Computed example of a mutant assay.
Amino acid sequence: MNKIKSIGILTSGGDAPGMNAAVRAVTRAAIFAGFKVFGIYRGYRGLIYDEIEEFSTQNVSNIIQRGGTILKTARCKEFQTEEGRQCAYDVMKRRGIDALVVIGGDGSLTGARIFANEFSIPIIGLPGTIDNDLYGTDTTIGYDTALNTIMECVDKIRDTATSHERLFFIEVMGRDAGFLALNGAIASGAEAAIIPEISTQVDQLSELIKNGFRKSKNSSIVLVAESPITGGAMGLAQRVKEEYPEYDVRVSILGHLQRGGSPTAHDRILASRMGAAAVDALLDDQRNVMIGIKNDEITYVPFTKAIKNDKPINQDLLSTLRRLSI
Rank of each mutant, 00 (worst) to 15 (best):
A193T: 07
R42N: 15
G128A: 14
D285W: 09
I298Q: 08
R95V: 00
A265D: 13
D90Y: 09
I124L: 01
R287G: 07
E53M: 05
E197T: 11
E118K: 14
R24Y: 07
E197R: 03
R273P: 05
R259I: 13
T11E: 05
I124S: 00
Q58H: 13
M274Y: 05
E197C: 07
A185G: 11
F38C: 01
G34E: 13
E297K: 14
R214S: 12
A161E: 05
G292R: 04
S252G: 11
I313L: 15
V60I: 10
Q238R: 14
N62F: 10
V172L: 08
L182R: 03
E226W: 00
A29K: 08
V222Q: 03
I194Q: 04
Y300G: 02
R323V: 06
E53W: 00
P263N: 10
I307Y: 02
V23C: 09
D285A: 15
G136W: 01
R28H: 10
T81L: 10
F79M: 05
D267Q: 09
Q58E: 14
A33R: 12
I221E: 02
A112E: 03
N288V: 02
D316T: 15
L257S: 12
S219N: 15
T140M: 04
G107Y: 04
R239W: 12
S262L: 11
Y143F: 15
F79V: 01
K3I: 07
I130Q: 05
T73C: 04
M290Y: 04
I195P: 01
K294C: 14
S325V: 10
T304C: 13
I123R: 00
D248P: 03
P312T: 09
V202P: 02
I326N: 14
Y44E: 00
G8I: 02
G174Y: 00
Q204I: 10
G107W: 04
Q80P: 00
D248R: 07
S163L: 11
I198R: 06
A177Y: 07
N132L: 11
V172T: 12
T139W: 05
G231A: 11
L321V: 08
